[in-house]
């Protein structure tokens, strides 16, 4: 690999943009295709397919065998609510490879002391979220139980096409939330993307178990195609 290609690739990855390196297996020739340029590439269909799946792989083309090395941004998690569940969830998410950010305007909750290794922002979502660049490689979780905090954050996450959006609360709580958000103009399709009650149905009781249920559900959203995803399940947390 030419150092120039490696540098350009690392620059794309730093900026959280997807990119693919195409290597001709016969000649060793290589080129970098940035996601924004994929549509112009001769291998457009293959490259777009691989960016969607996030998986590298060997492909036969009319010009011979090529290897596509796919780089999509590392997934991250943004949470509203510096609460007990978040304290359990943050270290689990870290081990799973996610970068975690917690937003909570309640300064008694949002302290670095309660979340030693995590980015904590003691601000309202309308201030905290826009600079974070929430994107489709971000999972968003609303855990405060407070509509003043969770609702605007959920609206933001849905508009940014997060790969996972989940909200804590019973079916009843969620039904009320859906009504409120509909009133603010969100579509049925958007609201249907919210996982609520949040988490896989594993009978979770403690905050740590609920964190595991949530991380299991996020993993399935990241890794499985929608057809293979576990059914939306009865409440595991309230």
């Amino acid at each position: 690999m030419k150092l120039d290609i490696l540098k350009a690739l690392n620059a794309e990855r730093n900026a959280r943009r997807a990119a693919v390196v195409v290597t001709d297996q016969a000649t060793g020739d290589q080129r970098l295709v940035k996601a924004a340029d994929a549509a112009k590439d001769p291998l457009k269909d293959l490259i777009e397919k691989h960016i969607r799946s996030g998986k590298s792989g060997m492909e036969e083309t009319p010009q011979g065998k090529v290897f596509l090395t796919v780089h999509v941004p590392a997934p991250r998690i943004v949470i509203t609510g510096a609460v007990h569940i978040s304290q359990a969830l943050a270290p689990i998410a870290k081990i799973l490879g996610y970068d975690v950010t917690i937003v909570d305007p309640r300064t008694a909750f949002a302290t670095q002391e309660r979340f030693p290794d995590v980015k904590v922002i003691a601000e309202w979502p309308d201030v905290a979220l826009p600079p974070l660049g929430v994107d489709r490689y971000t999972a968003f979780i609303a855990l405060t139980h407070d509509p003043k905090i969770d609702d605007p954050a959920l609206t933001h996450a849905l508009s940014r096409d997060c790969f996972y959006v989940g909200a804590l609360g019973s079916k009843k709580t969620h039904a009320r939330r859906v009504e409120r958000l509909k009133g603010q103009g969100l579509s049925e399709a958007d609201l249907g993307r919210i996982h609520a009650p949040i988490g896989l149905s594993i009978g979770a009781v403690s905050p740590a178990e609920i964190a595991v249920a949530i991380m299991g559900q996020i993993t399935s959203s990241l890794r499985l195609t929608p057809e293979k995803a576990p059914e939306k399940v009865p409440e595991t947390a309230s």
Partner: peptide, 16 residues
């Protein structure tokens, strides 16, 4: 637990 991020950055840094 090193991710591929670290590895490609290391490759660039080592070469540089």
């Amino acid at each position: 637990l090193a991710t591929d991020d670290d590895i490609l950055k290391a490759a660039e840094a080592w070469r540089s």
